[in-house]
């Protein structure tokens, strides 16, 4: 059984069809990358998978671990093991990063019938993950994402992923805003989490991330459709030629 199966997914936002029939299958252990021009619907797909309610699904179905993902609330999908690293992480003033992380982990553990983790057990575990991502301890006591630099926010997303250990991680442009060293460190962190039980969907604009996180498959999303899929070499081709050839081919293939 596949971990994620998206069948003919159609999504609208305010009367505009943004996703026009997406098909995608992801098996446990695989890493797929989604590339595509600005506004093509990559984040929309990511947010729909994470069950954001402001997007209206007008057709298709999604199975996550064999369960109907579209019937789940965001917190249920999260507790079932779906994690989204946000393109634009949100600030929560007045709530410390450490407290937030522990609350999230405990919410997930509770859902799975596991004991909640107390601060004594949690902090050493958190410190380990922090080390993996070469993050400063100080970020733990600061409010979630508040006044974090762009790069710190992105790194903080991956820290959360490392703590929550999801089955499916969706990374939405985690590389944008990271400096060269940070990109390497974050990519190493992500690679360390690759495992036969876990799948990842990596949304990016740049081949350089895929040099570190080598995907099994690359999909190109244009105007709400996956117009091409291939191996890692497809990313190199895009880097070289841009989207124009693919776009024109795609338009020719299925006129709007």
């Amino acid at each position: 059984m596949s971990l994620l199966e998206i069948k003919n997914l159609k999504v609208r936002v305010e009367d505009r069809e943004i996703l026009k029939g997406i098909n995608l299958t992801l098996n446990a252990g695989e890493v797929h990358s989604i590339m595509g021009p600005n506004g093509s619907g990559k984040s929309t797909l990511a947010q729909v998978l994470a069950r954001r309610e402001s997007y209206q699904v007008t057709g298709g179905e999604i199975l996550f671990n064999g369960k109907d993902l579209l019937a789940m609330k965001p917190e249920e999908a999260a507790c079932e093991g779906l994690f989204l690293a946000f393109q634009y992480p949100v600030e929560i003033p007045g709530i410390s990063n450490a407290y937030f992380l522990r609350s999230a982990l405990n919410a997930v553990r509770k859902y799975r019938g596991q004991d909640e983790m107390d601060a004594m057990d949690f902090l050493p575990m958190l410190r380990e993950k922090l080390k993996l991502l070469e993050m400063d301890d100080k970020l733990l006591n600061r409010s979630v994402n508040e006044a974090f630099s762009g790069g710190e926010k992105k790194r903080n997303e991956i820290l959360q992923m490392a703590v929550l250990e999801p089955k499916l991680a969706i990374l939405d442009e985690t590389d944008s805003g990271l400096d060269i060293d940070a990109l390497r460190i974050v990519a190493q962190g992500v690679n360390a989490m690759r495992s036969p039980e876990r799948a990842m969907l990596v949304v990016t604009h740049y081949q350089r991330l895929l040099n570190y996180i080598v995907p099994d498959r690359v999909h190109v999303l244009v105007e709400g459709r996956i117009v091409r899929s291939g191996g890692p070499e497809l990313a190199l081709e895009l880097e070289d030629q841009g989207y124009s050839t693919i776009e024109s081919v795609a338009r020719g293939a299925s006129p709007a």
């Binding site: 917190e75 989204l84 949100v90 709530i95």
Partner: peptide, 25 residues
């Protein structure tokens, strides 16, 4: 904010409480 917290596994009412408590910190 609500979506962010719920995506991390918090129930909607816990998300509201968390945001409000942060506001009152």
């Amino acid at each position: 904010q609500m979506f962010y917290l719920r995506q991390r596994g918090l129930k909607a009412e816990d998300a509201v409480s968390m945001i409000v408590n942060g506001f009152c910190k």
